[in-house]
Amino acid sequence: MEDKNPKDDPEFRNKLDEGVRKTNAFAQYSSLGFQMLGTIGLGVWGGVKLDEWQGNEKPLWTIVLSLVAIGASLYLFIRGLPKP
C-alpha cells in the first residue's frame, strides 16, 4: 500500500491552511478586546494618579489622558486586526 501523508495533498493542505488562518484570526480578535480594555484602563489610571499628585481641582489629566487612551486603543485595535 502506498504510504501517503495527507498533508502532501494540495487540496487537503489548502483546507488545513484555511483552518489555521481562521483560528489565528480568532485568537487575534480575542486578544484585541483585552488590549483595548488595558490601554484605556492604563490611561484613566495614569490620569487619576497625576491629578492626585498635582492636587488638581478639575480632573484635567483624567479627562485628557482617558480620551488619548481611547484614541490610542482604537489605533492599536485597527493595527492589530488580522490581515485578510
Partner: peptide, 15 residues
Amino acid sequence: VEIVGVFMKPFSLMV
C-alpha cells in the same frame, strides 16, 4: 502609544 501596545500584548494574554 507603540510602547503601551508592547505592554498590552502580554497584558491581554494574562487577563
